[in-house]
Design a protein around this nucleic acid. Structure first.
Lengths: 190, 190
DNA sequence: TTTTGTTGATTGACGAGTCAATAAAGATCA
DNA sequence: TGATCTTTATTGACTCGTCAATCAACAAAA
């Protein structure tokens, strides 16, 4: 059976399956067997390709951050002017993809992991740096020297609004979150 | 041996031990045996008093929220004027107690739990309502009809700043977080 | 024959929750 | 007072289940 070049295919399937299973249970209490089964292979093969459970989780989170990065770049490409750039970041941050059960589960558990797993913490700071840099590009022309402080506040506000939308009862309201973030900006720029 | 009236003592010891163990490991992957051992009793007794692991976690989180509530009330009692009330809420939200490893671990895992465990979600909304109500008391006299929207934003900002301070490298900087929150207010009120 | 893919079976361990049994403090009643 | 019953405290042992990781072995492509 050995069709060569299986590795990337298998790894991709496992990453996808990991994200689904973590989203389904809402926790990292997912067995390698469950993941492997959903990905259509044996648990032994999952170990063969990833070496362990933690590495599977990190690969899954890396994948989610990659998608988020792509979405952000896509929105930025269409943006016009500093205001447009900021709006693009907000749109990407509160996109439908980020409110899918699987993405939510990944993020919340990722934060838990970042407490103790160096690899997770590194990944998190990559995300935060990228977010800040994207915000700064829009803020610098509008706020000058205050851009730095505004980016810190806006970044935290985005995370906080996401947390609340995601854990509240009823469906999340991306538009409301974006409106609150824009109000923050308006107050600081107007 | 049966000294009567052990129940509250045992429960308190278990709650304390649960918080310590969750903080130590950073996750809910803690065995009842570990917790019971740290609390100086058998695992069977822990089950006897709490019925199960999840109820122990919820009791632990309830305890943390109680402490936080007490700290907030204490700060509010000394506060003068609307500005003082808001400052009191900020001070309590970024107090040293909330940055202890155990408290951080409890909060992050609590958010994970709130995805799927109804009891945890209820507890979370109690916290959010209380925070909002405390903020509103200070904001209404200062912002009138805009108080509602400001409280939403400020509440989310507090959570987001906490998340960042707690997961960044190096020691958390409560003063910086408070300063950012105050800047948000100043921009919206000035 | 070396490399890559693949899995069933196994190892070695751990863990939540239950249960039966022991022990003692208070309550009841004669 | 003493006998007995009930309630509370406490644990060791056990059940039943799980799971991560390893390994030997088979298959096929280069």
């Amino acid at each position: 059976m050995p069709k060569l070049g299986m590795e990337p295919i298998r790894k991709a399937a496992l990453v996808k399956a990991t994200i689904i299973e973590v989203g389904r249970t809402g926790s990292l209490d997912v067995t390698v067997s469950q993941i492997a089964k959903r990905a259509g292979m044996s648990a032994a093969l999952a170990h063969h390709y990833f070496g362990g459970k933690e590495q599977m989780f990190l690969a899954a989170m890396r994948h989610i951050l990659t998608l988020y990065g792509a979405e952000t770049r896509g929105a930025l490409a269409l943006a016009e002017g500093p205001q447009g750039r900021i709006q693009a970041v907000l749109t990407a941050s509160f996109s439908a993809a980020n409110f899918r059960r699987e993405t939510v589960g990944a993020w919340l558990n990722f934060w838990v992991l970042a407490q103790t797993v160096p690899g997770a913490r590194r990944l998190l700071s990559v995300y935060q740096r990228r977010l800040r840099s994207n915000l700064m590009a829009g803020l610098r022309p509008l706020a000058g020297p205050r851009a730095e402080a505004l980016a810190v506040g806006l970044g935290a506000l985005i995370d906080g609004l996401y947390l609340r939308e995601v854990l509240k009862d009823g469906p999340p309201d991306a538009a409301a979150a974006i409106a609150t973030a824009r109000a923050y900006l308006a107050a600081n720029l107007g």
